[in-house]
C-alpha cells in the first residue's frame, strides 16, 4: 500500500501538484488518469523518488519515503518494478539479459538459477523462445512484455507503469492491460498505472484517481466513472466519440 498525503510539487514557481491525498491499495490496479499536463508523470516520479516533493509525504506500507536512509531507499527500490512508456530496454543486451538484469544486480543467485527464473517470467508473458533476440528485433508489443518481465522478475511489491499502452494497437494494448492486472492479483502487488487510454480504464480500472491541473479532482472505480456527474471527469471520459456513442446507446436503451 502506498499512502500519499498533502503532496505538493512545483518547478520554477509553478505548482504542478497541489495537495494530493490518495491511497494506492495493495493487490489492485490503481490507475491515475488525466489530460496531458495534469501532473500524472510528476506524481509518478515523486512516488519513485526521482523528484523530491516540496511538501507532503509518500509512505510505503506506512513508512514515509523521506524518512528512509540511503540504504533503506536502495532496499525499497529492489522491491519496485517499473514499466516505462517506451519499455526502456537496454539496447546492448538481448531479451534474456534484459530480464536477468535486476537478478544480476541484486541477488547472489547462480547463473543457472537466474536463467530458470528468467524463462519462467518470459513464459508468463508469453515470450518463450525470444530470449536470444535483441530488443530491436522484436515488435513494440513484445518489447513492452519484455519490460513487464524485467519489472516482475525480482518479485516486486510495487509495480509502476507509465502509459503501458502508448503506441500499441488495441488488441495488443488489451493483452498488456490484462497481463498487468493478472500479475497484480497473482502476486498481490500494489500497481500504479498512468494512462489516458479509456479502454484501459474500462478493462482494469479497479481504483481510479483523476487528476486535473495538479489536483485530485475525482476518485472511484471503473463502474463509478461512467455514472459520475462530475463535469471535469465526464468531459475527459466522453471526449472520445466512441464513448459518447456508448453512452447515447445506453441512454436510448433505458
Amino acid at each position: 500500500m502506498i499512502e500519499v498525503k498533502d503532496l505538493y510539487k512545483g518547478f520554477e514557481g509553478q505548482e504542478v501538484l497541489k495537495g494530493i491525498d490518495y491511497v494506492f491499495e495493495r493487490g489492485k490496479t490503481n490507475l491515475i488518469i488525466g489530460q496531458s499536463g495534469s501532473g500524472k508523470s510528476v506524481f509518478l516520479k515523486c512516488m519513485l523518488g526521482l523528484f523530491k516533493p516540496d511538501r507532503g509525504t509518500i509512505a510505503y506500507d506506512g513508512k514515509p519515503f523521506s524518512s528512509f536512509s540511503d540504504e533503506e531507499q536502495r532496499e525499497l527500490r529492489k522491491e519496485i518494478g517499473m514499466l516505462f512508456q517506451g519499455g526502456a530496454l537496454f539496447d546492448s543486451m538481448n531479451v534474456e539479459e534484459n530480464v536477468m538484469f535486476p537478478l544480476r544486480m541484486f541477488t547472489k543467485q547462480r547463473r543457472k538459477e537466474m536463467l530458470s527464473r528468467v524463462h519462467e517470467v518470459l513464459e508468463r508473458v508469453n515470450l518463450e523462445g525470444t530470449g536470444k533476440k535483441m530488443p530491436s528485433e522484436i515488435s513494440g508489443g513484445m518489447q513492452k512484455r519484455v519490460a513487464i518481465a524485467r519489472a516482475i522478475v525480482n518479485k516486486p511489491k510495487y509495480l509502476f507503469c507509465d502509459e503501458p499502452n502508448s503506441g500499441l494497437d488495441p488488441k495488443t494494448a488489451t493483452v498488456i492491460d490484462n497481463l498487468i492486472q493478472d500479475l497484480t492479483h497473482e502476486n498481490d502487488i500494489t500497481t500504479v498505472l498512468i494512462t489516458h487510454d479509456m479502454n484501459s480504464v474500462l478493462e482494469i480500472g479497479e481504483r481510479i484517481a483523476f487528476l486535473k491541473d495538479g489536483v485530485l479532482a475525482w476518485k472511484g472505480t471503473k463502474h463509478e466513472i461512467f455514472k459520475t456527474k462530475d463535469e471535469a471527469v465526464t468531459d475527459f471520459v466522453y471526449s472520445s466519440d466512441l464513448f459518447q456513442k456508448v453512452r447515447d446507446a445506453q441512454q436510448q436503451g433505458q
Binding site: L48, L50, R77, K78, I80, M82, F84, Q85, A88
Partner: peptide, 13 residues
C-alpha cells in the same frame, strides 16, 4: 532519451 538511465535510477543503481 529512451529512459534507460531513468530505469537504472529507479532500480537503485
Amino acid at each position: 532519451v529512451t529512459e534507460q538511465i531513468d530505469a537504472l535510477e529507479v532500480m537503485g543503481i
